[in-house]
């Protein structure tokens, strides 16, 4: 065996406990989701079951109101991503390209906001949304998610924007382009990797967020997926674990799709941002 192969095997063996930790919950989720209901609580617990009960997913869809919650989650995550990008891109561009008073202070301020846990702000945010009349409204989540992610996205975008040579825009101006034209035709196409990476981050953060959603939403029809799944577990006499797990499995699917679609940008974008 070649040296390289031996080394690969050793590394894989060393990493395998980590892989188990990551995959174990998924395995439990999946076997519970496809099990017949009366085999849920066998003792001793077993990985095996008599048949694949795919009907669990169909039953769950209507019983849990999965479709509605899925649409709510999609709306909130996509809208928060778009909103955050709409504000972050110009902010990051300004930080990257212009000199202005208080620039260092502003950057530090952005960094400091990341040191606060959203949980400590929940009460204040709730009262703010009451004042705006946005409680029980999905848009309250869109605004807060966008706001919470913006500091990070501005920071991330700025470090990437710094790697795009200023001369490219200058060349476009000399060629006769306006500032706006050079932004659209030259700058933004080159910034796509960074924009994709930040979009992934905002989308996943928004998709998985639980505490704020639980606080702001009161109406069953407005629940996002994490809250909806939680509501199947909390305060019930009988918990339909096979439905809960089927819902959880399905809830991870959109994130997996977004991630695999944009991951080539993720690697490129993170590497580029890191080096400079």
């Amino acid at each position: 065996m070649s040296n390289k192969l031996v080394r690969s095997i050793v590394y894989w063996l060393l990493l395998s406990p980590l892989v188990i930790v990551i995959l174990f919950p998924f395995a439990v989720m999946f076997v519970t989701a496809v099990r017949p209901r009366d085999e849920l609580f066998t003792f001793p617990p077993s990985w095996f079951f008599s048949e694949f009960r795919w009907d669990n997913f169909v039953d769950m869809w209507t019983k849990v109101n999965f479709g509605g919650a899925l649409l709510n989650s999609l709306y909130v995550s996509v809208a928060a991503t778009v909103l955050a990008l709409v504000f972050s891109i110009p902010a990051a561009y300004a930080l990257s390209r212009y000199r202005f008073r208080g620039k260092g202070l502003y950057r530090n301020f952005l960094l400091m906001t990341q040191m606060m846990s959203p949980i400590v702000l929940v009460l204040g945010l709730f009262r703010l949304m009451v004042a705006f009349g946005l409680v029980n409204n999905l848009n309250s989540l869109v605004i807060t998610y966008a706001a919470f992610n913006m500091a990070f996205t501005i920071w991330m975008l700025q470090s990437y924007f710094n790697t795009i040579p200023r001369e490219l825009e200058e060349a476009a101006w000399m060629d006769g382009a306006t500032h706006l034209r050079s932004l659209i035709r030259i700058f933004l196409p080159l910034a796509v990797p960074a924009i994709a990476v930040t979009a992934i981050f905002i989308f996943i953060n928004s998709w998985n967020e639980f505490v704020l959603a639980l606080t702001m939403l009161r109406n069953n029809n407005d629940f996002t997926l994490p809250v909806q799944i939680f509501s199947q577990v909390a305060g019930r006499y009988q918990i339909e674990w096979h439905h809960v797990m089927a819902a959880t499995v399905l809830a991870t699917v959109p994130v997996a799709i977004v991630f695999s679609w944009l991951q080539r940008y993720l690697i490129r974008g993170m590497a580029l941002g890191a080096v400079k």
Partner: peptide, 19 residues
Amino acid sequence: PPRDRDIAMVFQNYALYPH
């Protein structure tokens, strides 16, 4: 503004649009 000066410029790093 530069776009109205009718000047063409060649940059040190060429500044070719990579895309």
